[in-house]
Simulated scan of single mutants.
Amino acid sequence: MDKVAVLIPCYNESKTVKKVVEDFRKALPEAAVYVYDNNSTDGTGDLAREVGAIVRHEYQQGKGNVIRRMFREIDAEVYVMVDGDDTYPAEAAPEMVRKVLEGQSDMVVGDRLSSTYYTENKRPFHNFGNSFVKNCINRFFDTNIQDIMTGYRAFSYQFVKTFPVLSHGFEIETEMSIHAADKHMQVDHVIIDYRDRPAGSVSKLNTYSDGFKVLTRILSLYKNYKPLGFFSLLAEILTALGVAFLIPILTEYWATGLVPRFPTLIVCGFVLIAALQSLFAGLVLQSMEQKNKQDFEMQLIAAHEAYKNLQKDEKEQEQ
């Protein structure tokens, strides 16, 4: 088991990967630096290997798939995840590692938004999207994570081995943040100085398509993690629609004793029944979610026992 593992997912980062590996080997000399090449065609893996990185491959395209492979294959006391585009400072890594080892953090967020992100990043829609996603998640999940979509984080062994990776692409960071918030894991922040990509390095993130995926992922996770809130909101909308169309019919009935619009009355009845069903669905799913949280606590205990066993085996091997 590694003491510290630096995880660098890469896809065509030949312009920057050597510098990233060198910077993190200097900042964390005790760490094993892993570069996971995601079908690069520009020699990214070979360049990383030249400067001492352990290069592995993930052939399913997408950042989420790469992170699933990383978390599954590597055992470490602390994991530092960073993008291979040289936008994050390696100098912040020791502090992030210290918060996990000494401060019992489950996830440490490299916070770009509290420092230089808005001045360094030249894509205004990205700036808006980061702020919007942060506000949505903090509002929906009652948390206070300062940078939801940062690619620079540190994790404990327990977080990595109990985090179910479901996303395939760039929405993985959003999923990590929501998982930590919902499971009441300890989240800390380290403010970092973000720098924009160097000349010749091209972002793989599509502002609109990937932004839409992130938003739909937030909605899907809100439904899964907060089913009572989601289905109660749906019930309120259906009730409002049903009542809005029902009131004119009732008003006319009270005035004339006639109901001339039977189709509308029938539809209103079905809409109100759907609202009631939605509310009960939320109540049932909320009970299931509570059971899932209880099961997750047992998974945490099992992960902690596995962590202690790995440490014990390592000490025995050293002796």
Results as ranks from 00 to 15, higher is better:
residue 2 D to A: 09
residue 4 V to S: 10
residue 5 A to H: 07
residue 7 L to P: 02
residue 13 E to R: 15
residue 18 K to I: 13
residue 18 K to W: 12
residue 21 V to I: 14
residue 22 E to F: 03
residue 24 F to W: 04
residue 27 A to N: 10
residue 31 A to V: 13
residue 33 V to K: 02
residue 36 Y to V: 04
residue 38 N to V: 11
residue 42 D to N: 05
residue 43 G to R: 10
residue 43 G to T: 06
residue 47 L to K: 09
residue 48 A to N: 00
residue 53 A to E: 06
residue 55 V to R: 01
residue 61 Q to H: 11
residue 62 G to I: 07
residue 67 I to D: 02
residue 68 R to M: 01
residue 70 M to D: 02
residue 70 M to Y: 08
residue 70 M to H: 00
residue 76 A to H: 03
residue 79 Y to G: 08
residue 81 M to S: 09
residue 81 M to W: 09
residue 82 V to G: 03
residue 88 Y to F: 15
residue 88 Y to T: 15
residue 89 P to S: 02
residue 90 A to Y: 05
residue 93 A to D: 01
residue 93 A to E: 01
residue 95 E to K: 14
residue 104 Q to T: 06
residue 106 D to I: 13
residue 107 M to K: 07
residue 111 D to T: 15
residue 115 S to T: 00
residue 122 K to N: 10
residue 122 K to I: 14
residue 125 F to N: 04
residue 127 N to D: 15
residue 127 N to Q: 15
residue 128 F to H: 11
residue 131 S to L: 14
residue 132 F to E: 13
residue 133 V to R: 04
residue 135 N to A: 13
residue 136 C to K: 12
residue 146 Q to P: 05
residue 147 D to Y: 02
residue 152 Y to L: 13
residue 155 F to Q: 03
residue 155 F to W: 08
residue 158 Q to E: 14
residue 160 V to W: 04
residue 162 T to A: 11
residue 162 T to Y: 07
residue 167 S to Y: 13
residue 170 F to M: 08
residue 171 E to R: 11
residue 176 M to N: 06
residue 176 M to V: 12
residue 182 D to K: 06
residue 184 H to D: 12
residue 187 V to C: 09
residue 189 H to K: 04
residue 192 I to H: 05
residue 194 Y to L: 12
residue 194 Y to R: 08
residue 195 R to G: 00
residue 195 R to D: 00
residue 199 A to G: 06
residue 201 S to E: 14
residue 202 V to W: 03
residue 203 S to Q: 07
residue 208 Y to D: 14
residue 210 D to T: 05
residue 211 G to F: 07
residue 223 K to Q: 13
residue 229 G to Y: 14
residue 232 S to Y: 15
residue 236 E to I: 10
residue 237 I to S: 10
residue 243 V to C: 00
residue 244 A to F: 10
residue 246 L to S: 07
residue 248 P to Y: 00
residue 249 I to N: 07
residue 254 W to F: 15
residue 258 L to S: 06
residue 259 V to H: 06
residue 260 P to D: 08
residue 260 P to Y: 07
residue 265 L to A: 11
residue 268 C to K: 06
residue 270 F to M: 12
residue 276 L to C: 02
residue 276 L to W: 09
residue 277 Q to Y: 06
residue 277 Q to H: 05
residue 278 S to V: 03
residue 280 F to G: 05
residue 283 L to N: 07
residue 284 V to M: 12
residue 285 L to I: 08
residue 289 E to M: 04
residue 290 Q to H: 13
residue 298 M to V: 12
residue 299 Q to K: 15
residue 302 A to E: 12
residue 303 A to R: 08
residue 305 E to V: 13
